[in-house]
């Protein structure tokens, strides 16, 4: 009982904090790989302003540079020009203020579920007791209390991704960066995961940058959809999703949803055709 009280307090504090933090600014960012004749521009001059607490999906075909853009926000990649800012501070390296969720196999396979979630707090210098309490909070949030002592290899793909989300959130980041986190899951599990992600997000209110190539997923989750095109990567459309929250999977049949889907698909189709013609010409 005591522990639970402590937890709710912690969450309230976090929610208050998160309202004022988590603004992501991408200012004239260009990302390229290689140099000279082999220079390959992955992301062309892009500018974005993502207000705190917004759920943004970046939608685009594979290879369009959407992961590259996310990696620059994470701090894994340095832009060739331009700046990435988080709450007005320039991003220069990876850090715990940006929680990262990967597509798959990103849990430390030699650490238990509990140790995986407690990793961030432990690195941050929290005492073992605090780490345990944080880990337990997030274990119960994702409904995997019974799995605390298991190794990641003993969990299903969906459970592993839930642990991945919990691990990223255990640092109370200002922004959650998700790189196709449900891409490797089967369709049913994916739907459940999407709903539970929205539940978690409504509680935390963190800014979310979510990469996907699944149109339905983007519409179902996002406040705002950015459609990216390939060669070189750039944002070709910025759509607001005005569907009411909380959302349930049956909204996929509503008129607004279908309208939005049509819009997204037509953008993507044009781009995919272009990419397809390019690849056949070569």
């Amino acid at each position: 009982m005591k522990a639970e009280k402590g937890l709710t307090k912690e969450r309230v504090i976090h929610q208050k904090k998160s309202i004022s933090r988590g603004r992501v600014n991408i200012n004239d960012v260009t990302i390229s790989f290689g140099s000279g004749a082999n220079k390959n521009i992955a992301v062309e001059t892009t500018t974005l302003d993502i207000p705190p607490g917004e759920f943004v999906c970046i939608l685009g075909p594979s290879g369009c540079g959407k992961s590259t853009l996310l990696n620059s926000v994470a701090g894994y990649i340095k832009p060739a020009s331009g700046q990435v800012l988080l709450d007005e501070k320039e991003v220069t390296q990876p850090g715990p203020d940006r929680g990262m969720v990967f597509q798959q196999h990103s849990l430390f396979p030699w650490k238990t579920v509990h140790e995986n979630i407690a990793f961030g707090p432990k690195i941050a210098g929290h005492s073992q007791k605090e780490c345990d309490s944080i880990a337990n909070t997030f274990l119960s949030m994702i409904g995997l209390q019974g799995m605390a002592g298991k190794l990641p290899g003993e969990l299903s793909g969906g459970m592993q991704q839930r642990v991945g989300i919990a691990r990223a959130l255990a640092n109370y980041p200002s922004v959650l960066l998700m790189d196709e986190p449900f891409g490797a899951l089967d369709a049913q599990t994916r739907l459940i995961m999407q709903e539970s992600l929205l539940n978690i997000w409504s509680e935390f209110g963190t800014t979310v940058l979510f990469i996907t190539h699944d149109v339905d997923e983007a519409i179902f989750l996002a406040d705002r959809i950015l459609i990216m095109s390939a060669g070189p990567g750039s944002i070709i459309a910025d759509l607001n999703v005005e569907l009411p929250r909380p959302r349930h999977s049956d909204i996929a049949t509503s008129e607004e949803f279908v309208d939005l889907k049509r819009k997204c698909l037509s953008h993507i189709r044009k781009e995919s055709l272009k990419a397809f013609e390019c690849s056949t010409n070569h």
């Binding site: 994470a74 715990p96 990103s106 990793f119």
Partner: peptide, 29 residues
């Protein structure tokens, strides 16, 4: 050592020495 694990540790706040201890060493074991 899988690069994704190194990246995960970095984004969880680990510095080079901690990445070495918590990721590289166990992965190489």
């Amino acid at each position: 050592t899988p690069e994704v694990l190194v990246r995960a540790a970095l984004s969880l706040g680990a510095k080079r020495s901690k990445v070495f201890l918590h990721v590289v060493l166990p992965a190489a074991l």
